[in-house]
Design a protein around this nucleic acid. Structure first.
Length: 611
DNA sequence: CCCCCCCC
């Protein structure tokens, strides 16, 4: 029944001579795992047929295979190749001359091997001869993304080169050599030249540990096929750091390849490279170098961050909704002085997230006019049950870069996003993301809650028994997200120690201490402004204005709320103070009672008792 | 050969 699968007969001949053939349909006749080290570094060599010819040197990575599913490599399966690169590999050492390999970058499964069940046509092996007989100009690498209008990307270009003097032996001019796609690099062959754009250059960092000390820097490199990190240690810093510039394209060869430590790698490659004394880096001045892509992004929308594990590295694009002032403080662990700025980002998922910038990036960042921030390699962090982002040294930060995703989000923000309420996933609350089991206050006591590092969370249906009206309100820093109590300078100005600034204004905030009871007992807890407002049924500002008029107002407002009932989500944490440990409870969220939900919980408890 | 990435 294989007649119904129409393979792209003759396409291999064209492709393997460096020509273009968009979206060819091929059959897999055999596949073999090669260079298998760790399971996640597998590559596959595939025998491909277009029904007229076969080649036995097509390759794909595990990642590409996984885009489609593991079955794609079954014998006889029919695939459509949506993106590929061919590359000439120097095999003279093996006495077989140059060989062209086909590297599959994207594919679709048309029919499984089981469905097809047989070899289609009577293909014959495409000879090496036919691939090396290609004209020698402009053919070392061709690429197609499957569109018929797409032009070839010529990796090696020759002739005129006016490189500035590179900091190394120039007897070898790499611009006249065949180049290889980054995705074909592996520790298993070392004769290659890549033509890659530097998308990021780290600062120079020093280290000192039991194994020695030194300095290092790293470059993020990318080409049409992929990306890879290149690190230079010690002498290599002096040799290359100033020479190499971000956004320029270079010919690079003779680096050491090794497996990337996935825990720390922010680039999508199983390998990374280290400079050696033999390493050559030469700037490429080709007009065609514009075809080498800029930084590759794999954006996640902000709503997805809520369900992303802490320490995950993500690429993010968002509009700057607000920015804190620069904050300076001592790191507890190292004693070093740290500087940071907190940025609130929003995107079309109608979600907001806090992003922390550090050091000089924090100092120089200007968030006025709501710029679009694009970050490759931000780190997900967790704090108080909310998720946030933080830059790390390898993060690549761009403000309003010229790219289509940036224009799209700009349009959304200017059109509707600016006036939209966004869910803030960085808010410290037990509202989402983790489990808040129902508990009674007696159970909280009996089960010794509060010993977990980040505290224990629970929810309870409680009655407000007593709210302390003294000190329940304070004048706070007007900066959004700050909320620190200001010092009244008695001259019309208010000073925030945290922001290290004086303001002519302040905002009222509530911070209430209250005793809450349920059927089993009672518990003292504290509650922040947003939740106290729900209990008292008024905003902090409204309450503040009443208290300004009448100092007794607070006691009256509070009194009206006694014996009201709510669902309270609480965090309990054991704290030691003056050698005495006691359970500190913070109510992080107050909601009106949803009786259906609460009754379901009661019914469940009753059924547990019966069983 | 680094791989720390900070604070509430």
């Amino acid at each position: 029944m294989s007649a119904k699968y129409n393979l792209s007969a003759g396409s291999l001949e064209i492709i393997m001579q460096g020509g273009k053939y968009p979206n060819p349909i091929m059959q897999i006749l055999a596949s073999k795992r090669i260079n298998a080290g760790a399971a996640d570094k597998e590559r596959y060599r595939v025998v491909l047929s277009d029904s007229k010819n076969t080649i036995s040197f097509a390759m794909l990575t595990t990642q590409v295979r996984d885009q489609v599913g593991p079955d794609v490599l079954e014998m006889y399966s029919v695939i459509q190749i949506d993106k590929y690169i061919t590359s000439v590999i120097d095999n003279k050492a093996k006495g077989v001359g140059d060989a062209r390999v086909l590297l599959i970058l994207e594919l679709k499964l048309i029919a499984s091997g089981a469905e097809v069940g047989e070899k289609i046509g009577s293909p014959v092996q495409l000879t090496n001869d036919s691939s090396s007989s290609a004209p020698k100009t402009n053919v070392s690498n061709t690429n197609t993304n499957g569109t018929s209008t797409n032009s070839s990307v010529v990796y090696n270009k020759p002739a005129t080169s006016n490189n500035p003097t590179p900091p190394m032996d120039t007897s070898e001019n790499l611009s006249n050599q065949m180049t290889h796609p980054i995705s074909s690099l592996s520790p298993y062959h070392n004769k290659w030249v890549i033509k890659a754009r530097v998308t990021n250059k780290s600062s120079i960092r020093t280290w000192s540990n039991s194994r020695g000390e030194g300095k290092l820097f790293s470059l993020d490199l990318c080409d049409e096929s992929g990306e890879i990190r290149l690190t230079g240690f010690k002498d290599m810093v002096d040799k290359f750091y100033d020479y190499v510039q971000v956004d320029k394209v270079y010919f690079i060869s003779k680096c050491q390849l090794k497996s990337a430590n996935k825990q720390y790698s922010t680039l999508k490659n199983d390998y990374e490279m280290t400079m050696t004394p033999e390493t050559i880096i030469q700037e490429c001045h080709d007009v065609d170098s514009s075809a080498i892509p800029q930084t590759k992004y794999d954006f996640v929308t902000i709503d997805k961050i809520a369900n992303t594990e802490p320490n995950t590295i993500v690429d993010i694009i968002g509009v700057v909704k607000s920015v804190s002032d620069l904050q300076t403080f001592q790191a507890k662990s190292t004693g070093r002085e740290l500087k940071k700025k907190d940025v609130t980002l929003v995107d079309q998922s109608k979600t907001a997230v806090a992003l922390t910038l550090w050091g000089s990036e924090a100092e120089s960042f200007d968030g006025t006019n709501n710029p679009v921030l694009v970050i490759k390699g931000a780190r997900v962090t967790e704090f108080g049950g909310g998720k946030s982002l933080s830059t790390v040294s390898s993060s690549n930060i761009k403000v309003n870069p010229e790219m289509k995703e940036c224009y799209r989000i700009r349009g959304w923000y200017d059109g509707e996003g600016a006036n939209m309420d966004a869910t803030n996933i960085s808010a410290r609350s037990g509202a989402g993301g983790f489990n808040t089991p129902w508990m009674s206050f007696k159970e909280v006591q009996d089960q010794n809650l509060g010993n977990a590092d980040k505290g224990d969370y629970y929810q309870v249906m409680g009655t407000i028994l007593l709210i302390r009206s003294e000190n329940a309100m304070y004048k706070a820093c007007p900066t959004p997200e700050c909320n620190k109590k200001v010092i009244d300078l008695e001259n019309g100005m208010y000073r925030c120690e945290k922001c290290n600034r004086e303001f002519p204004n302040f905002k009222y905030r509530l911070l209430a201490s209250m005793n809450v009871g349920d059927w089993s007992g009672n518990q003292w807890m504290s509650m922040f402004s947003s939740e106290v407002e729900k209990v008292l049924g008024q905003t902090s500002q409204e309450i503040g204005e009443q208290v300004e008029q009448n100092s007794e107002a607070m006691a009256n407002i509070v009194d009206k709320c006694h014996f009201r009932q709510f669902i309270l989500k609480c965090r309990a944490k054991m704290e030691t103070y003056n050698d005495e440990s006691r359970l500190k409870t913070v109510c992080i969220k107050v909601d009106p009672i949803n009786y259906e939900e609460y009754n379901n919980h009661l019914i469940e408890r009753i059924q547990q008792l019966i069983a």
